[in-house]
């Protein structure tokens, strides 16, 4: 019996290590995407393929979509950014965007790999609303990441197409983020009987929604453009990442029973 348990754990650990290995290989290939000419493009595609393999591996291990904890969520956010990058790259190759975006995607994968995969799913997470919430939430984060990169490129080179890209991706991210919050509220209400909690994370998530809301209102209603507007939009990702990584660690929340 002990032996069986030991073998099971060893097997779980082995699968976790394999996933981490795949993510690190993928991160390396994404970085190699910075190479000039076709080689870079093929390296990126190879990175994306290995990344997809790691997601499939996690799906098989968990028996459900791998969206239930930090390791998988960060990997998924990087995946959204990689897909967006591919879409943009096919339409129009942009060296300046690659220089910011590929290292950011690789960095995210390294952060994901630094979090040990958890191979169990809480009973409270077994809900379609939960999966929809996380899927939309981290799709939005991926788009905020793309918006950040486009903004950074705009601030460096002042090409208006990047300012427009920053706005469009921020708007797309914000709308999807909104739907993610709504589906999250529905899930939380069906799980715990409340759709709002007084925790630091909830307050910062609301802050993030208002932050992008402010930027988009200013851009839409007042024609607020240029370097300052772009800087405000770019800073949104910092707020998003702080909300995800910093809040709860740096700013603790009151103990709740949830």
């Amino acid at each position: 019996m002990d032996g069986a348990i030991y073998c099971g754990l060893a097997s779980d650990e082995g699968r976790s290590l394999f996933t981490i290995f795949l993510l690190l290989v993928s991160a390396t290939l994404y970085i190699m995407g910075l190479m000039e000419s076709k080689k870079g493009h093929y390296a990126f595609l190879a990175g994306l393929t290995v990344h997809v393999a790691s997601i499939i591996e996690r799906t098989l291990t968990l028996g459900t979509l791998p969206l239930t904890e930090k390791h998988d969520n960060i990997s998924y956010m990087a995946f959204v950014m990689a897909l967006s990058y591919l879409y943009i790259h096919v339409k129009k190759e942009s060296r300046s965007l690659s220089v910011i975006m590929l290292p950011l995607i690789s960095l995210l994968l390294c952060v994901s790999a630094a979090h040990l995969p958890i191979n169990t799913v809480s009973p409270f997470m077994r809900s379609y609303w939960f999966y929809l919430h996380i899927f939309l939430y981290f799709t939005a984060f991926g788009l905020f990441g793309l918006s950040f990169c486009a903004g950074a490129v705009y601030m460096h080179g002042r090409k208006s197409e990047y300012e427009s890209m920053q706005y469009r991706t921020a708007l797309s991210g914000w709308v999807i983020f909104t739907a993610g919050l709504v589906s999250g509220s529905i899930w939380f209400y069906s799980a715990y009987g409340t759709y709002w909690l007084w925790t630091s994370r909830e307050l910062w998530t609301t802050l993030l929604w208002f932050y992008y809301g402010l930027y988009l209102h200013a851009r839409l209603m007042k024609g607020f453009r240029g370097r300052t507007a772009s800087a405000i939009g770019t800073f949104g990702l910092i707020v998003a990442l702080f909300t995800y990584f910093g809040v709860g660690t740096i700013i603790p929340s009151p103990p709740t029973q949830f």
Binding site: W198, L203, G213, L214, H217, S253, P254
Partner: peptide
């Protein structure tokens, strides 16, 4: 918007500084 965002940041710090007091707010 700006005022509300300031309150959200201040609120998160207030929650962190008064954990015992706010532990029952969701009940």
């Amino acid at each position: 918007f700006l005022f509300f965002m300031f309150l959200l940041i201040f609120g998160s710090l207030s929650l962190a500084g008064n954990l015992a007091l706010f532990s029952g707010v969701d009940e």
